[in-house]
Amino acid sequence: MTAATSRRPRRQTAAGVRGLFRDQPVIPLLGLLAILVVVIEVVDPGIVSIDWAGVIIKGSVPLAILAGCQTIAMLTGGIDLSVGAVASMTGFVTATMIHSPGGEVQGIVIALVAASLAGFVSGVGVGVFRVHPLIMTLGMNFVVLGLANVWQLQNVQTGAGVPANLRTLGSGAFVEVLPYSLVVFVPVMALILVGLKRTGYGRLLYAIGDNPVAARLSGARSWQVLIVLYVISGLLAGIAGLILSGYANTASVSLADSSVLPSIAAAVIGGTSIMGGRGGYAGSIVGAVILTVLAALLTILGLPEPTRQIVFGSIIVVMAAAYTRVTAES
């Protein structure tokens, strides 16, 4: 009897935490982020400052945008592995066109059109031909990478350099805490957040991921939704690539390759289910920031790259397992 009564509140608390994780993962994630920041301050007193926050934000922005690609794709039960090649390609193409007159704008336009085109092809494959998104976007990754290489060879004589404006966009800041990249990121973020919550299109992304049969029976034609989805994803990856090349001040055809897996990790940490129908972009943004802070923490701890990867991987498994548990039907 006593055991039963004493256990009851605990169980309720557990249920509350479960519910919180399930319905509002952003809140516990922000808590996790806060803990990380506290830890980093304890480890290296005085490091946490406005400047530091600016550095973290700057580093998080490209990752957060790429995580946006994964979020919207994962909501439908898909994934976009082509973001690495597409993002690298846009930064690279823009860089190679810097020397022609008006080349910067021209380069950006060409790059983003190409990025959208790549997304369109992926979308047709996934939506119309029903190729598994993993395979389709992997194939597109090869195609874009190869074409970018071809482009590289043909433009090698002109030389390349990251345009000054992109450098400013990627690494500059209004004030320390407000990098210029927010000029791009904030509208992107607003569009995705509002788009997912308040537009019919966003609803359909969730619908297709949750139950494609129900979506079909309700009159949704999923191929339309999927083509648009991958075009958006390609475009976002392209934008991320531009910022990334400015941030890293380099442009290479493999610049964003190492960001693909973290972008998926950010979305998974943020509570988006790879099975579709569940999640949101806010969580992914926090996930991207958490990954960036975590990387910084490990650097401070003198734990180099290897440990960082091990920790990243473990966190993804643990978080995904936790989400699977709390969202499972009781």
Partner: peptide, 8 residues
């Protein structure tokens, strides 16, 4: 995720 771990 494990690909990160093993690579690490």
């Amino acid at each position: 995720a494990m690909s990160f771990v093993w690579a690490g």
